[in-house]
Design a protein around this nucleic acid. Structure first.
Lengths: 103, 103
DNA sequence: TTGACATATCGTGACATGCCGATATATTTC
DNA sequence: GAAATATATCGGCATGTCACGATATGTCAA
């Protein structure tokens, strides 16, 4: 190996930039609540919106953002769209958040 | 107890709002790098700035933001200011991030 | 086909954030 | 005290985000 230990201990900046994108997307109260719910089951847009107390077109927007960076995936069933967690590491990160800020 | 299980499984929104604040503060490539370094030791502003390839007055600004939401703490020694991790859970969260985005 | 429902997208104004140069404070050295 | 070093703060500009109303798309039921 060529590089010394100090160098390779750190994640390269481009990877950190991608991580920052995901964290930024996650960093919103309603989006955290949505993720918390989706880690426990599948929900349609309207249900998530009601649980957050926001109009459904805004829940749709939050879901779109999280889907765009690979955190969620959606499936249409009839006139409803169900969302579920697509990124397995979300559970770990959410556990960390809950450990710090209390369930 | 009065509430049903579904209700009390979720973190209250104010706590999620606080969590979102911290995550938003963390969600920046240079700040993630800084945290990664501080989890391995104490560093002065200039050292962190050099490692990120940014002018030191910008590192100072990043450090101020993270200090403001309790992630870091600083101590002056002579003309230098050393920063260190103040929030123990940072290690867990950073492990999650590294597990997902590769070390 | 018409109407109702569920979700998605668009356009906008208010507001926050990131980055930068310039400048200010604090501390050591001469 | 003056110069040098290390941090910190300020003002401004560009860009991004949030919440919202309005509107568009897709789906079912009658």
């Amino acid at each position: 190996m060529v590089k010394n230990k100090a160098d390779e201990a750190f994640t390269p900046l481009p990877a950190l930039a991608e991580a920052a994108e995901c964290l930024k997307t996650l960093a919103h109260p309603h989006r955290l609540r949505i993720v918390q719910m989706l880690l426990r089951g599948r929900y349609a847009v309207g249900e998530l919106a009601q649980a957050c107390g926001i109009p459904s077109h805004m829940a749709s927007e939050h879901l779109r953002l999280m889907q765009r960076c690979g955190l969620l995936r959606s499936e249409r069933e009839g006139r409803k769209a169900f969302y579920e967690v697509a990124e397995p590491h979300l559970a770990n990160i959410m556990e960390c958040v809950e450990a710090r800020f209390g369930p």
